[in-house]
Computed example of a mutant assay.
Amino acid sequence: MEDVLDLLDALLDGVTEPRLKLIGADEARALIVLLGLLEDEGQPEEVRRAAGDMRCRISSRLA
């Protein structure tokens, strides 16, 4: 599981502003909602923390 989280984190770090704009605002919002589901209390702490961090980073790039 930690390997998957590291991979997702590395992929998100590699996304530059122009590349993020390749997905529309609607898709980005959908990703934020899906990541919100991973923040559910039933998930392990490391998953909730990573999902919250990714949601924050995507949200800040949309602003």
Rank of each mutant, 00 (worst) to 15 (best):
M1R: 09
M1V: 15
D3S: 15
D3H: 15
V4M: 09
L5D: 08
L5N: 05
D6T: 12
D6L: 15
L7P: 08
L7Y: 12
L7C: 11
L8Y: 10
L8M: 12
L8R: 10
D9R: 13
L11D: 11
L12E: 08
L12D: 06
D13C: 11
D13K: 10
G14D: 11
G14W: 08
G14V: 06
G14F: 06
V15P: 03
V15N: 08
V15S: 03
E17H: 13
E17S: 13
P18Y: 02
R19Y: 15
R19I: 14
L20Q: 08
L20A: 07
L20G: 07
I23T: 03
I23K: 00
A25N: 10
A25S: 13
D26F: 08
A28S: 06
A28L: 01
A28F: 02
R29S: 06
R29N: 01
A30G: 11
A30E: 14
L31Q: 06
L31W: 05
V33E: 10
L35W: 01
L35G: 00
L35K: 00
L37G: 11
L38S: 03
L38H: 03
L38N: 05
E39G: 04
E41A: 03
E41D: 04
E41K: 05
Q43N: 04
E45P: 00
E45H: 03
E46K: 06
E46T: 07
R48N: 01
R49G: 01
A50S: 07
A51R: 02
G52K: 02
G52P: 02
G52V: 01
D53S: 11
D53W: 09
M54R: 15
M54P: 07
R55T: 11
R55A: 10
R55H: 11
C56P: 08
R57D: 05
R57Q: 05
I58M: 05
S60N: 14
L62N: 12
A63C: 14
A63G: 13
